[in-house]
Measured scan of single mutants.
Amino acid sequence: HEITLHINGRRVKLRFRDEKAAEILKEAAKKGLDEEELKKLAEELWR
């Protein structure tokens, strides 16, 4: 699955395995994680 989040006016595509991962990524984006941090988090969730 993929999700596209808008971060600092940019579109960031993240891959994720399940809905739980999608929710975690959305929450992290709301908390203000930047693009690099979100990509790292997405990679961690993928494993």
Results as ranks from 00 to 15, higher is better:
residue 23 E to M: 13
residue 27 E to K: 09
residue 5 L to T: 01
residue 41 L to M: 10
residue 42 A to W: 04
residue 30 K to I: 12
residue 13 K to L: 08
residue 35 E to N: 05
residue 25 L to F: 08
residue 25 L to M: 05
residue 16 F to R: 03
residue 23 E to S: 12
residue 12 V to I: 13
residue 31 K to M: 15
residue 11 R to H: 15
residue 28 A to M: 09
residue 18 D to L: 03
residue 4 T to L: 08
residue 23 E to H: 13
residue 22 A to F: 10
residue 26 K to R: 13
residue 18 D to R: 02
residue 4 T to H: 10
residue 42 A to Q: 03
residue 7 I to Y: 03
residue 43 E to A: 09
residue 26 K to Q: 10
residue 34 D to H: 10
residue 12 V to D: 00
residue 19 E to V: 09
residue 6 H to Y: 14
residue 36 E to P: 10
residue 20 K to Y: 11
residue 41 L to C: 04
residue 46 W to L: 04
residue 23 E to N: 13
residue 3 I to R: 02
residue 27 E to P: 00
residue 2 E to I: 14
residue 44 E to M: 12
residue 17 R to T: 05
residue 40 K to M: 13
residue 5 L to Y: 02
residue 26 K to S: 08
residue 2 E to M: 11
residue 32 G to Y: 05
residue 27 E to A: 13
residue 12 V to Q: 02
residue 14 L to V: 06
residue 20 K to H: 10
residue 22 A to R: 15
residue 10 R to K: 15
residue 5 L to H: 01
residue 39 K to A: 07
residue 8 N to W: 02
residue 36 E to M: 13
residue 25 L to W: 06
residue 17 R to H: 07
residue 47 R to C: 08
residue 33 L to R: 06
residue 10 R to V: 12
residue 37 E to S: 15
residue 14 L to K: 00
residue 34 D to L: 10
residue 47 R to F: 14
residue 36 E to F: 13
residue 36 E to R: 12
residue 43 E to F: 08
residue 37 E to N: 12
residue 15 R to H: 05
residue 3 I to C: 04
residue 36 E to K: 12
residue 9 G to R: 02
residue 39 K to G: 07
residue 47 R to M: 13
residue 2 E to Q: 07
residue 24 I to P: 01
residue 39 K to M: 14
residue 7 I to E: 01
residue 9 G to Y: 00
residue 27 E to V: 08
residue 37 E to G: 15
residue 43 E to H: 07
residue 29 A to L: 09
residue 26 K to E: 06
residue 47 R to E: 11
residue 19 E to F: 12
residue 37 E to L: 10
residue 2 E to W: 15
residue 10 R to E: 05
residue 29 A to V: 10
residue 15 R to C: 06
residue 22 A to L: 15
residue 42 A to H: 02
residue 30 K to C: 14
residue 19 E to G: 09
residue 45 L to Q: 03
residue 37 E to R: 11
residue 2 E to F: 15
residue 32 G to N: 06
residue 40 K to E: 12
residue 21 A to T: 07
residue 16 F to K: 03
residue 32 G to C: 05
residue 39 K to I: 14
residue 32 G to V: 04
residue 47 R to Q: 12
residue 46 W to N: 03
residue 18 D to W: 05
residue 1 H to Q: 12
residue 31 K to G: 11
residue 45 L to T: 02
residue 1 H to G: 15
residue 43 E to P: 00
residue 43 E to W: 10
residue 1 H to I: 12
residue 5 L to N: 00
residue 3 I to T: 02
residue 15 R to E: 02
residue 37 E to M: 13
residue 47 R to G: 10
residue 27 E to G: 08
residue 8 N to S: 06
residue 26 K to M: 14
residue 13 K to Q: 10
residue 35 E to V: 14
residue 5 L to F: 09
residue 28 A to N: 06
residue 22 A to T: 04
residue 35 E to H: 09
residue 25 L to S: 00
residue 33 L to T: 07
residue 6 H to F: 11
residue 39 K to E: 07
residue 28 A to Y: 09
residue 3 I to A: 02
residue 22 A to K: 15
residue 34 D to W: 06
residue 12 V to H: 02
residue 8 N to D: 08
residue 3 I to H: 02
residue 41 L to A: 02
residue 38 L to M: 12
residue 30 K to N: 13
residue 30 K to Y: 10
residue 29 A to P: 01
residue 5 L to A: 02
residue 31 K to L: 12
residue 23 E to V: 11
residue 26 K to A: 07
residue 32 G to F: 05
residue 13 K to I: 15
residue 19 E to S: 11
residue 1 H to K: 11
residue 23 E to Y: 08
residue 39 K to L: 14
residue 34 D to C: 09
residue 27 E to W: 07
residue 14 L to R: 00
residue 15 R to I: 06
residue 40 K to T: 12
residue 17 R to L: 09
residue 35 E to M: 09
residue 41 L to V: 04
residue 35 E to D: 06
residue 40 K to P: 01
residue 34 D to T: 14
residue 16 F to N: 02
residue 6 H to P: 04
residue 29 A to I: 12
residue 5 L to K: 00
residue 21 A to H: 15
residue 43 E to L: 09
residue 43 E to D: 12
residue 34 D to P: 13
residue 22 A to M: 13
residue 2 E to H: 13
residue 31 K to T: 11
residue 6 H to M: 15
residue 2 E to R: 05
residue 44 E to R: 10
residue 26 K to N: 06
residue 4 T to K: 03
residue 16 F to G: 04
residue 44 E to D: 12
residue 42 A to M: 05
residue 43 E to Y: 09
residue 34 D to Q: 13
residue 28 A to R: 04
residue 13 K to P: 04
residue 47 R to I: 14
residue 42 A to F: 04
residue 39 K to T: 13
residue 4 T to W: 09
residue 19 E to A: 14
residue 32 G to L: 06
residue 33 L to V: 11
residue 33 L to Q: 08
residue 2 E to N: 07
residue 23 E to C: 07
residue 23 E to Q: 12
residue 25 L to A: 03
residue 15 R to P: 04
residue 13 K to S: 09
residue 36 E to N: 11
residue 27 E to T: 09
residue 24 I to K: 09
residue 36 E to I: 11
residue 1 H to D: 09
residue 40 K to N: 11
residue 30 K to W: 07
residue 2 E to T: 14
residue 10 R to Q: 09
residue 36 E to C: 09
residue 6 H to A: 08
residue 29 A to D: 02
residue 31 K to V: 09
residue 30 K to T: 12
residue 21 A to V: 05
residue 36 E to H: 14
residue 16 F to T: 13
residue 33 L to G: 08
residue 14 L to A: 01
residue 13 K to E: 05
residue 45 L to F: 04
residue 30 K to S: 13
residue 19 E to Q: 15
residue 43 E to S: 07
residue 24 I to R: 08
residue 29 A to N: 05
residue 32 G to S: 05
residue 16 F to L: 06
residue 12 V to N: 00
residue 38 L to G: 00
residue 27 E to S: 12
residue 40 K to A: 14
residue 16 F to Q: 01
residue 38 L to D: 00
residue 28 A to S: 07
residue 29 A to C: 09
residue 9 G to K: 03
residue 25 L to I: 11
residue 25 L to N: 00
residue 39 K to S: 08
residue 27 E to M: 12
residue 7 I to F: 05
residue 25 L to H: 00
residue 26 K to G: 05
residue 31 K to Q: 13
residue 26 K to H: 08
residue 38 L to K: 00
residue 34 D to R: 10
residue 17 R to E: 03
residue 44 E to W: 15
residue 18 D to T: 14
residue 39 K to F: 13
residue 17 R to W: 10
residue 39 K to C: 06
residue 3 I to D: 01
residue 40 K to C: 06
residue 10 R to G: 06
residue 15 R to M: 07
residue 18 D to M: 03
residue 38 L to I: 13
residue 26 K to L: 14
residue 12 V to M: 05
residue 18 D to F: 06
residue 28 A to K: 05
residue 45 L to P: 01
residue 23 E to R: 10
residue 26 K to F: 11
residue 24 I to G: 03
residue 10 R to Y: 04
residue 22 A to D: 02
residue 7 I to N: 02
residue 6 H to V: 15
residue 42 A to L: 04
residue 6 H to S: 10
residue 47 R to T: 13
residue 33 L to F: 14
residue 22 A to C: 13
residue 15 R to G: 01
residue 37 E to K: 12
residue 11 R to G: 10
residue 24 I to C: 07
residue 15 R to K: 11
residue 27 E to I: 09
residue 44 E to H: 11
residue 9 G to H: 03
residue 30 K to P: 01
residue 2 E to Y: 15
residue 20 K to F: 11
residue 47 R to S: 11
residue 47 R to D: 10
residue 37 E to A: 15
